[in-house]
Amino acid sequence: MSSTSFTKRIARWNRLYHRWIAIAIAIPMIFIITTGIFLQIRKPIDWIQPPTTKGSQKYQPTASLEQILTQVKSVPAMQVTGWEDIKLLDLRPNKGIIKVRNHDQLETQVDAATAEVLQTAQRRNDFVVKMHDFSAWHARLWLGLPVRVGFLVLFLTGVYLNIKMTPVRLKTLFQKSSKRTTQTAQTATTNVTTHIPQATAKDGRPLRLRLKSWLLTYHYWLGWVVMIPWACVIFSGLLLQVRYEVPWVMPVLQQGQGTVPKIEFPQVLETAQQLPEYGVEEWKDVWRVYVYPNQGVTTIRAENRQEFQIDSSTGDVLQVATRRTDWLEDIHEGKWHDLNLWLFLPIHILSLFLWLTGTAVAYNR
């Protein structure tokens, strides 16, 4: 087999894979992109995610767990009677606040120093995240994962096809440009006044073929625009899809001995300080602290991506491991310097158009 025929065969198989995978995952991918756009705008839109308030003091979480529970009980909407009604406590040392969530995703923010209630609001983005990865329907592995693998294959075959088509596209673009510069006013007038049947375009092609050509042209050029951001989104999204199964991505959450947290926040920091090799010396080294009452575990997420899992009842260190989930989420959403709003959000919107044009072409070939 000659190298030319082999190359043509590879190109033909690439087109076939690209087309049929696009058709197979069209609907779930439109859903993923749409929910992704929704999540990109969660920070500016309070209805999606309540804004994070600021406490009276940064890096001073002195409010006791009992004070926090008592204050949250005083909020009727939370419907909290004990620790079993609380899903988690989320301490933000640099903001001086603690976010307390119940099992219905209602969130109360309290001052980390005084335990004063600062805000109560519904948190809707968590459910959208579950929809985004299909865990809301217990389909994260058997549907969400295959769709994202298909998306990766589609991306790779699309890159190949774009590179292969570049010489042809550039040649066509150059020819059209040359033709426009040499076209006379008389020819232009003739084209306008010539009677053409309604079922055909100006060049004599059926309107259906002209529409397909238009879709392919825009699909090609938009592919180059979204290529690099999409690479970040696809590879990080694929790893996040299996975060519960791959400890390298996210350490397995351990189970503590009790369901009533007893270890106060200052004690949590002291426990981490006893392991200096992991780099936590003060509150400024801590990104967040999560308390899971039902799991009996308190976790410290350090700025250096180390995660300490501590028994909430005894204070014993259950596990210390690198947590890459938060870093991958930053890549997935393009959070650096607000890239998620001025770059990744427009790219997601363009991607939705790209997906719709590609699907339309695939169905009409």
Rank of each mutant, 00 (worst) to 15 (best):
S5T: 15
F6M: 15
R9S: 14
A11H: 14
N14D: 08
N14L: 02
R15T: 14
L16I: 14
H18L: 08
A26I: 02
M29I: 05
I33N: 12
Q40L: 10
I41T: 00
D46C: 07
I48Q: 04
T53W: 00
K54A: 07
Y59K: 02
P61T: 09
P61E: 02
A63G: 07
S64D: 03
E66H: 04
I68G: 12
K73V: 06
K73P: 05
S74M: 04
S74N: 09
M78H: 07
T81R: 03
D85E: 09
I86Q: 09
K87F: 15
L88I: 13
R92C: 07
R92G: 05
G96I: 03
I98D: 12
K99M: 12
V100G: 10
H103S: 05
L106H: 01
T108Y: 04
A113F: 08
V117K: 05
L118T: 04
Q119W: 01
D126T: 06
D126P: 01
M131Y: 14
M131E: 10
M131T: 14
F134Y: 00
W137P: 02
L143W: 05
G144W: 03
P146V: 04
P146S: 03
V149L: 12
F151Q: 00
L156F: 11
T157D: 10
V159T: 13
V159D: 02
V159A: 04
L161E: 11
N162W: 10
P167L: 08
P167K: 11
L173Y: 03
Q175M: 07
S178H: 12
A185Y: 01
N191E: 04
V192F: 03
T194P: 01
Q198Y: 08
T200D: 06
K202W: 08
K202L: 07
G204F: 10
R205G: 05
R205M: 10
R208V: 10
R210E: 10
L211W: 09
K212P: 02
W214I: 02
L216A: 11
Y220T: 14
W221L: 15
G223R: 15
G223M: 13
G223P: 13
W224N: 06
V226M: 00
W230T: 14
F235V: 13
L238W: 02
R243T: 13
P247E: 11
V252I: 15
T259R: 11
V260Y: 01
F265L: 15
Q273I: 02
Y278H: 10
G279P: 09
E281L: 00
W283K: 01
W287S: 15
R288K: 07
V291K: 05
P293M: 15
V297F: 04
I300Y: 07
E303I: 09
N304V: 09
N304C: 06
N304I: 11
Q306W: 12
E307M: 15
Q309P: 05
I310P: 08
I310N: 00
S313N: 01
T314I: 01
D316R: 11
D316N: 15
L318W: 06
Q319P: 09
V320T: 14
V320L: 10
W327V: 01
L328Q: 06
E329Q: 10
D338Y: 00
W342C: 01
L343Q: 08
L345K: 03
L345T: 03
P346N: 01
P346M: 14
S351R: 02
W355R: 11
V361T: 13
N364W: 14
